[in-house]
Computed example of a mutant assay.
Amino acid sequence: MCGVELIKKFEGCDLKAYPDPRTKGLPITIGWGSTRKRDGSPWYIGDTISQQEADELLIYQLETSYLPDLMRIPCWGELNPHQQGALLSFGYNLGSRFYGASGFDSITRVLNNRDWPNMRETLIKYRNPGTNVEQGLRRRREAEADLFLKPYP
């Protein structure tokens, strides 16, 4: 599945459950940023998993919770695996229901118009300017743009 390595690069993996960095509390997170177990129940501080469990949980959540939403993007079926992978990473970071949502007008417009030359500039807009995470998000958005625009054989 294209995009998984990009997600792993920017999410990082922690095999011990930890509080959400933004809220300093819920949701409790583990692995590659997973906030729920396979059965949908929450993680608790003190929970641990193996690397294999973290990897399998990421794929499971991408297949069951993220891809179904992304597949509703009208042009999804026309996108190559690199383009889909870039949007998978974007959706994993900002929510898989971004298409058509409030605050996502620019990327929705680019996708609707299939305006690929403006994809890089558009993705980079979603970096939380003026915050302590701006530089990290900019690197992620640039990597997503690189993947989106990378020719697919």
Rank of each mutant, 00 (worst) to 15 (best):
R120W: 07
Y126H: 06
L79E: 07
L88I: 14
F10I: 11
Q135R: 14
K9A: 10
P19F: 13
R140I: 09
R140S: 07
L79S: 03
Q51N: 04
S106L: 14
L94E: 07
T48S: 15
F148Y: 13
P81K: 11
I7M: 11
C13G: 01
A145M: 09
A17Y: 02
P42F: 04
R139W: 09
P21W: 02
C75P: 01
R72M: 08
E142W: 00
L79N: 06
I59Y: 04
Y92F: 15
Y99K: 08
D105C: 06
T29Y: 04
G103S: 06
I59K: 03
L62H: 06
R38S: 07
E56L: 04
E63A: 08
S102A: 12
G103H: 04
L147D: 06
S102K: 15
P129H: 07
G91Q: 04
F10H: 15
G85L: 05
I7W: 06
A86D: 04
I28W: 02
F90C: 05
W32L: 08
R72G: 01
P68S: 01
Q51G: 08
Q83N: 08
I49N: 00
R109S: 13
P68T: 01
D69Y: 15
S50M: 02
N132W: 13
V133P: 00
C13M: 13
I49G: 00
A143K: 12
S41K: 14
